[in-house]
Design a protein around this nucleic acid. Structure first.
Lengths: 218, 218, 218, 218
DNA sequence: CATGAATGAGATTTCATTCAT
DNA sequence: AATGAATGAAATCTCATTCAT
């Protein structure tokens, strides 16, 4: 005669796990994986150290499970739900939105991304793959399809390589974000994202070299 | 009457330091800062543990001094020695060379950059600043001047923001490099840098949208 | 619903601390502070090294807490509970008892006092003050009041300085005690305390110069 | 064909040893034996670490040899050169001088006495005996003879125990000195030695109890 | 003799993990 | 399931001593 049903128990266990992982993420972000202590994580989770081990086999396992908790493919979703742009203008609007979401997302998770960069190079390959899914630029495959469609339709350059281009655009921004938000916490340039984003999109679409022409034949 | 001249001694001491730093870089790259042990570094340097402390005050100091050993501002030098490009074609050639050097450089130091990303977020601000100088994209200020000149001369868009643009171009590539060379060691796209670099430069200069080639003066 | 009540837990923790401090006192007395090792203290306490640190933050903290364990102000208590002596004879009896208690006390704690003398000069000022409270002669202020009263009443010299005198009497004995019991473990003189104490008290009260015996020619 | 004669060499070696011991005394006094480092001693002596070992077998040997350097039996000499006092007044004058010299001496060597107390309890018996010679109160045997003479002559109490009394007088002062000068560096009483010394001598000679001045000739 | 780099044993301290309650 | 005291391996760092130069 169990007090709680198996389902409720599973739910509770899930809750506990979530609670621990959330605490671990916070602590890892603050201290880095190696410098975080289980005691500290337990305290942040409102539990005793020993209790952690009722839910996870080791400290390392906490690291591996965190992404599954946090990774919500918002960017990919955003792209997949968006209608395929049919003109340059639609594409530009979409890219601006995409870039904005990316910035937003990175800034929100910047503390966690610290852990990411800190721990990733030394994780097992399996854990590493799990982790890489987090990278916003993995939304790139959706973007890639759109670019390919733009090339096909003709409003993008015929010789544009959609595979590369789909990674180049996020890369433009990612570096600002990584340096500013994740690595140093300082600005690299005296501009806000409201100026950086449009400039990057503009460069991506139109290049640095001036368009000859507001020719009527455009 | 010292057995060795001061100069010879300084040279020897410098050599020892170099030898230790090289060993530390290798071990840090393999294990990450926190997981590397002084014993291991000493063994890699062919010394006893205690000997490390004749040359560096602490394990952390090793980390701080490594960049001074490795950081040679090749990129900045490359840009500063290059003649100011006077046409789009000259600019394109320069950017291709610059991008190539950047890729080369990152790949060469990839093992060290692992340490960089791993340790940076948790270093003291002072050490962090020292470290940031390493980033190839800090060559950006030289590039910024060239872009500004291009805008002034007229072969680049009048409304191009040179500050942002000078960071956007390296950013395009940096993300490939970081993910492929530093973080995962795997390719993100089925192309080599011989294809990625020209494509990125092309996007940067001419954009993704086709030039309206219709114009007779085109 | 905790397994053990808070009170029981506090008691247990107190016990553990006491147990560790006792072991530390023994080891410190045998080896001196700097030569004692935490491992040795732990072994003496029947614990593992790490366990010490569940109760004390550092080896130095052990040193600071030991006195709080041992210091019971028996001497001061003895003096304060004693009725104010009204005659020379009562004073003499009191001093004999006081001196006896002091000797007893120093001999009992001689091993610990070794640590005391060894460590004190190099402790932080705060720890040093804590330690000084241990010195039996800090009972002096109670003695000082009694001497002052004796001067007022008239059975002690009018020009006696009670402040100095109250330290001079314990000092007479302390040096025997320190040299014999604490520093060398050897006798300085071929007499037991049963002879030393009365002689010291006699010198203190009546001096070395013979009393001019109520002789009429005095 | 030696450059220097054997005698000169011996002298030089003696000088070197003296120089090292002086440096060691300074450093031991500042840090205590265990916390002093050979490097520090060498630096204080203006030599390299290794050179110390050309003159002493170990760090501990430095400790053992220091007293031979410092111990000049000034107090004993003072007493032995003094004419045997024939009256209470002469004895009082002598004791005042003796006490003054003792205070002077302890204050001068207070830094070194720190080492003394720190190291003594843990030295080998042989080294300990060497050290004990330093104690000013070892001048006591000379004082003892004088007291015995005073008893014999009759100006001191017939039942005075000269052996004990000769240690009681220095002890009176030693405790002030030890606490104030060596252990804490703080005053125990708001009086200078110019008041403490006469009071102590007065108590020693005449006691705390007033002389029965009843005698007309008193 | 002088030097000081090299050594490595040993000390303190941390912390992931276990397990009796 | 929860606890947290106990553990002890392991890490960093110190320093007396040696020895080639």
């Amino acid at each position: 005669m169990p007090r709680v049903t198996a389902a409720a128990k599973a739910r509770l266990e899930g809750t506990r796990r979530t609670q621990i992982l959330a605490a671990a993420a916070v602590v890892f972000a603050r201290k880095g994986f190696d410098r975080a202590t289980v005691t500290e994580i337990a305290r942040a989770a409102g539990l005793a150290e020993g209790s952690i081990y009722n839910y996870f086999r080791s400290k390392e396992e906490l690291l591996v499970y965190i992404p599954r908790q946090l990774a919500q493919p918002v960017l990919a979703a955003l792209l997949e739900q968006a209608p395929m742009p049919a003109t340059v203008e639609e594409m530009e609007a979409l890219l601006l939105r995409l870039a904005g979401a990316m910035v937003e997302r990175v800034r929100t998770h910047s503390r966690f991304l610290k852990v990411f960069f800190s721990a990733l190079p030394y994780l097992s390959p399996a854990a590493r793959d799990t982790y890489m899914q987090l990278l916003p630029m993995y939304a790139s495959s959706a973007l890639e399809r759109m670019l390919r469609e733009g090339v096909r339709t003709g409003y993008l350059r015929k010789d544009l390589n959609p595979v590369i281009a789909a990674r180049v655009l996020p890369g433009m921004l990612m570096f600002f974000l990584m340096v500013q938000e994740v690595l140093t916490g300082r600005r690299m340039v005296p501009y806000g994202y409201d100026e950086i984003i449009p400039e990057a999109v503009r460069v991506f679409l139109y290049g640095a070299v001036p368009r000859r022409r507001a020719s009527p034949a455009g």
